[in-house]
Design a protein around this nucleic acid. Structure first.
Length: 277
DNA sequence: GGCCAGGTCCAAT
DNA sequence: ATTGGACATGGC
C-alpha cells in the first residue's frame, strides 16, 4: 500500500467539524490529524489552515469523500432567508456533507438506531475488528469495514453488543451487495429511498441518512430526536408530526434541506446538550 | 437506578 | 394511513 503524502487546498472546509458532525463514525485523532477508515481504505488527513495533508488515498478519492468541489453551502446561504439558519451557517463555516460508500453508510446507520454516538462508534469498531480486514498504517493496526458477505450471523453480532440490531444487520447483509447498492447511484432520491426502505432495519430516518450521506441526495431531511426537537420548537409547533416536519423542510429549505438538517443537528448537539457528548 | 439514545417493526385501530 | 408498545444495551 502506497502512502504517498499529498496536499490539497480546501477553502471553507473544517475537517474536525465535518468529521465530528454525526454523519460519520470511523475516524480517530492521530498526530494532529485523523486516521479515517472509509471507502474501503484506511488513510490519514491533517488540516493546517486551508491546507489538507493526506496519505493513503488518491487526491481524486479524497476530494470526492470530502466533497471539496461542493459549492452548496453558498447556495444554501443564498436561498434560505431563515435568520436562525443563516446565523448557524455563519457560526459553523466549513461544515460539509461527506460522500460515503453506500454500504458503509448503511451499516453505520443501521447500527445507529435508538442508540447514541459513543455506542455507535463502539459497535462499529467491534464489527470491523471482528469481521474486517486488518491494515497496518502509520505504525498501528486498523480495520477496514467488512463487505456485506463478511459480516457474521445474528448470534455473532449480538455477542458484539448489537442488541436488537443484530437481526437487522445480519439480514440486511444477506440481501444486499455493494453492487446492488451501487446500482442505485444514478436513481432519483425517491427511487433510492424506496429501495432502501425495503431493507430490514431501514426505516425512513436511516433511508434518509443513507440517501443524504452516501448518495448525495441533498433534499433528504433525516428526522431524528434532535431534529424533531429543534424543528418543533423553532418552526412547526409542539405537536408537529414527522411528516409535517419533512414538508416544512422541503418548503422552506428546498433542495438543500439535507445540509440545513446537518447545520441544525450540529447546532442543537452543541447547544442543547444535556450530557457530556 | 432511572432515563434516554441520530428508530424500526408490528399489531391494532 | 396513523398510533402505541416492544425491543437490547449501555452511557450518564
Amino acid at each position: 500500500m502506497s502512502a504517498r503524502p499529498g496536499g490539497a487546498r480546501a477553502r471553507a472546509f473544517d475537517l474536525a467539524l465535518t468529521l465530528g458532525s454525526g454523519q460519520f463514525f470511523r475516524y480517530w485523532p492521530l498526530d494532529g490529524g485523523y486516521v479515517i477508515a472509509a471507502r474501503g481504505k484506511v488513510f490519514f488527513v491533517r488540516q493546517n489552515d486551508f491546507r489538507l495533508e493526506f496519505s493513503g488515498i488518491a487526491p481524486a478519492a479524497l476530494r470526492r469523500f470530502f466533497a471539496l468541489d461542493d459549492r452548496s453551502v453558498d447556495s444554501l446561504a443564498v436561498s434560505v432567508e431563515d435568520p436562525k439558519l443563516r446565523g448557524i451557517i455563519r457560526r459553523y463555516p466549513g461544515l460539509r456533507l461527506l460522500r460515503q460508500d453506500p454500504w458503509e453508510c448503511l451499516l453505520a446507520f443501521v447500527c445507529s438506531t435508538f442508540s447514541n454516538i459513543p455506542r455507535i462508534r463502539r459497535l462499529l469498531d467491534s464489527i470491523c475488528r471482528t469481521y474486517g480486514t486488518p491494515v497496518s498504517f502509520r505504525g498501528q493496526t486498523w480495520y477496514e469495514v467488512p463487505r456485506p458477505g463478511r459480516l457474521g450471523d445474528e448470534r455473532g453480532l449480538r455477542r458484539l453488543g448489537a442488541g436488537f440490531r443484530a437481526r437487522y444487520l445480519a439480514e440486511a447483509a444477506r440481501v444486499v451487495t455493494r453492487e446492488h447498492l451501487a446500482s442505485l447511484a444514478p436513481k432519483s432520491y425517491a427511487q433510492t429511498r424506496r429501495a432502501l426502505l425495503e431493507l430490514p432495519g431501514v426505516g425512513e430516518k436511516v433511508a434518509d441518512c443513507v440517501s443524504l450521506f452516501a448518495y448525495g441526495h441533498r433534499e433528504a431531511f433525516p428526522v431524528d430526536t434532535w431534529i424533531r426537537r429543534v424543528m418543533r420548537r423553532w418552526y412547526c409547533g409542539r405537536s408537529a408530526t414527522d411528516r409535517e416536519i419533512e414538508q416544512y423542510a422541503h418548503d422552506h429549505f428546498g433542495p438543500q434541506a439535507g445540509l440545513a438538517q446537518q447545520y441544525l443537528y450540529v447546532y442543537v448537539r452543541e447547544n442543547w446538550r444535556q450530557r457530556g457528548y
